[in-house]
Simulated scan of single mutants.
Amino acid sequence: MRQFAEIEDLSDLVREALGARFRPVAVERLRGGSKKGVYRVHVEGPGGTGTGTGTGTGTGPTSVIVYRWADTENFWPATATERPGTNAGDPFAAASGLVPFLAAQRRLEGVGVRVPRVLLADGSRPGGADVAVVEDVAGGSLEALFGSDPARAANALAELATMLQIMHGQQNVSYGQVHLLERGGTAPGVSCEQVVTDRALADLAQAAGRDDRIASAACALEDRLRELAGRVAPRTRYGLIHGELGPDHVLVDADGLPVLIDIEGLMFFDVEWEHVFLRIRFDDRYEALSRPGLDPARLDLYRLAMRLSLVAGPLRLLDGDFPDRSAMRQIAEYNTHAALALLA
């Protein structure tokens, strides 16, 4: 049975981050994470009573967020975390832990993109867990604001479009995850489109082994992938992308500004990959984030590859004990229909 962190496990960490005047009084593990534990720790001390989130009206916060990277927090089955043929340098290898988190934090802060402030980071905790204590952004997610406060959400969406323009405008001659490139490493493969095609073929094989509809169309899907890949022209410069930027990975602070979270997979890559994901996740609101000049051939290839990823990934996750199983099945089902529709 999985053992998650309790308040006694996090109290010393939070006091170290905030100071001895703050006393943790409650902790809740937030839903949604599959690779790390995300905990909201409520505190009493200067500026707050421990019953709210974010910054109190006095001199300190009423809560903080603790990220905890540990084997017990990772719901991906050990045999299904990576696709066949991937390695630690692959742009789509699992990015988890303090090293990729801090590298992404530095890079984004360096270009003026808002991320939660890091109050403490420690990769030497007992039991081998990496931990970080970060600001608890008080405004909730952009996804929630779409329903509760459409006007505030629209303003944040416009700010997000500007933020993405800044990110995607950062150029690099190599592609790969930021923490890898920062250490002088190189990603495998000869191009983004080749990496995506190989990944999509592996996803197709794994999805076909789990879903009869994908299995029946596997030959046609493979032919379509190879046809679309053959249309893509070479490219030698790459933009900075989040990689999984949905409205649930955007918080909104007290000033109405978007704050990016789940940033460990930050990488230099074709920005078309980001825009395919943005279109899927933001749906009718995507137009506010769109930009001219995207390569249609890359968009076509990445659209099919993304759908296959969103079938295979949730099905792999369901091989383990991920708790929100209904949501994963719904994602896989929706994207199965979407992938097959692209053959029409």
Rank of each mutant, 00 (worst) to 15 (best):
Q3W: 07
F4I: 00
E6I: 02
E6R: 15
L10R: 12
A17D: 11
L18I: 06
A20H: 02
R21Q: 14
R23P: 02
K36N: 13
K36Q: 13
V38A: 14
Y39M: 07
R40M: 12
R40H: 12
H42E: 03
E44N: 04
P46A: 15
P46G: 11
G50Q: 13
T57C: 00
S63I: 11
Y67L: 14
D71S: 08
N74Y: 05
F75G: 10
P77V: 04
A78V: 15
T79D: 14
E82A: 12
R83S: 02
A88T: 10
A88W: 08
F92I: 00
F92L: 14
A94D: 10
G97C: 10
L98V: 13
F101C: 14
G112F: 05
V115I: 12
P116Y: 10
L120E: 13
L120D: 12
G123S: 12
P126D: 15
G127V: 11
G128Y: 12
A129H: 09
V133T: 07
V133A: 14
E135W: 03
G139C: 13
E143T: 03
S148C: 10
R152C: 07
A156N: 04
L157H: 04
T162G: 12
H168S: 02
G169Y: 06
N172A: 14
N172S: 15
N172M: 09
V173N: 03
S174H: 10
Y175V: 05
V178G: 05
E182I: 00
R183V: 06
G184C: 12
T186S: 09
T186E: 04
A187N: 07
A187Q: 06
P188S: 07
P188E: 09
V190P: 01
V195L: 15
D198V: 01
R199Q: 09
A202M: 08
A208S: 10
R210N: 07
R213M: 01
I214R: 01
I214C: 01
E222A: 13
R224K: 10
R231N: 07
R231W: 01
V232C: 15
P234K: 05
P234V: 02
T236W: 03
Y238M: 05
I241D: 09
G243A: 10
E244D: 15
E244C: 11
L245M: 12
P247R: 06
P247H: 06
V250R: 03
V252Q: 05
A254S: 14
D255S: 14
L260S: 11
L266N: 09
V271H: 03
E272V: 00
E274Y: 07
F277A: 06
L278A: 09
R279L: 08
I280L: 03
E287C: 06
P292N: 04
P296N: 03
L301S: 04
R307Y: 02
S309V: 00
S309G: 12
L310D: 03
P314V: 05
P314G: 08
R316W: 08
P323I: 00
A327K: 10
M328P: 08
M328I: 00
I331M: 10
N335T: 07
T336A: 03
L340C: 05
L340D: 01
L343S: 00
A344T: 01
